[in-house]
Write a protein that binds this DNA or RNA. Structure first.
Lengths: 212, 212
DNA sequence: GTCTATAACTGGATAGAC
DNA sequence: GTCTATCCAGTTATAGAC
């Protein structure tokens, strides 16, 4: 078996396990059993467990951010904040939707955990990949929303990211009457974007009187 | 040493470890070392590791929800959506702020993980505790925001919860120029509430024309 | 109620043959 | 590049003395 096909089969097996059993099922032993390869192969190809996890993240996060930028790039000059936020959010919902249709919903939790409890290295990788994306969207939003101070905009985009993180974490459980349950993808996008646009474009907070 | 004081010292030690080392530092061995008690004591008092984790959650989540309801109860009849959302969100920010001032910021990650990767039992416990709170707030919000359909309101409150979950997960790292970094607590509350109120009260999403 | 001692496992990593 | 065999640190849990 050539080098690259073993590498791929390890990644595929890891993904299958993450999708069905959640992150706890991702021991080197279970992965190698699933992939039909050997424990040492993982160390050879990825340098260890951490390297494998980083490779898994790249596999999903890089396309996600690429799609964000592509959608942003395709917008009209005159696009409003809602359209910009749709470019930011739609790729996440597409990913969640695709994985859930495949019966691989638990894979979203793997991604959610990369946010919620990153290894220092994973955190650095995520930040490095996400930073230019965030800056591009912030610049565009600042153009649409001149009345919102840039610092406030930055904070609010951070809150939007927090929403997305929450969606990824909960996505496997949303089968019932929950968040994005029974809707079509476009419907989900509309609803999420209307919430996000309302939040990002809200009048800047001013101190208000407290009750006596 | 009496039964209850051992129980307490175990809980305290668990909390100290979660606060300094994150969730991975919470093995029975490290806990018993820190508490100066024995491994078997944990099984005696909590029935095992899971029971201990459940007890830890109760210790923080129960007061959180109680405070939410208390603040909601103290509102004027005429209170608007922003005030209601402040009652919902302020307890979270208070908790994060308090833990960060104590140098126990990592404890927030423990709570964030309870959302992001709950044991089935933990998920059930969280849902049971949170459900009545959510219903109370939804009823109140429905009164303030008759123009937003109840189903939409429910979804949006879910998104607010996702924001909170994201805040808990990231809180330990927010020392730099990040989300709620340099502000006072009241300032944080104002900013978060203005975002949430903008999102929850946004005009209901309507289909909009896509670009050609 | 508390402790010692130990059982029974699983985890990641690696040396060295092929 | 790939495998076998092994190492060792780590985990939860429990039986049984006190």
């Amino acid at each position: 078996m050539t080098s690259s096909s073993t590498r791929e089969s390890i990644l595929d097996a890891t993904e299958r396990l993450a999708a069905s059993g959640g992150t706890d099922a991702l021991s080197l032993r279970s992965i190698t059993r699933e992939a039909g390869v050997n424990v040492a192969a993982i160390h050879y190809h990825f340098g260890g467990r951490d390297g494998l996890m980083r490779a898994m993240l790249d596999r999903h996060v890089a396309p996600l951010n690429a799609r964000r930028l592509a959608l942003l790039d395709g917008l009209d000059e005159a696009a409003g904040p809602a359209a910009v936020l749709e470019a930011f959010l739609r790729p996440d919902l597409e990913l969640i939707d695709r994985l859930r249709r495949d019966g691989r919903a638990s894979l979203t939790r793997f991604l959610g955990e990369a946010y919620a409890r990153p290894t220092p290295e994973v955190a650095a990788l995520m930040a490095a990949q996400f930073h230019p994306v965030a800056e591009a969207f912030l610049a565009r939003l600042a153009g649409c929303l001149p009345e919102v101070p840039p610092a406030e905009l930055r904070l609010r985009l951070g809150l939007v990211v927090a929403v997305v993180q929450g969606l990824f974490a909960e996505a496997p459980d949303l089968d019932g009457p929950a968040l994005l349950g029974a809707d079509t993808l476009d419907e989900q996008v509309r609803r999420l974007v209307s919430f996000a646009a309302g939040g990002v474009g809200a009048p800047a907070a001013t101190p208000h009187a407290r009750r006596p």
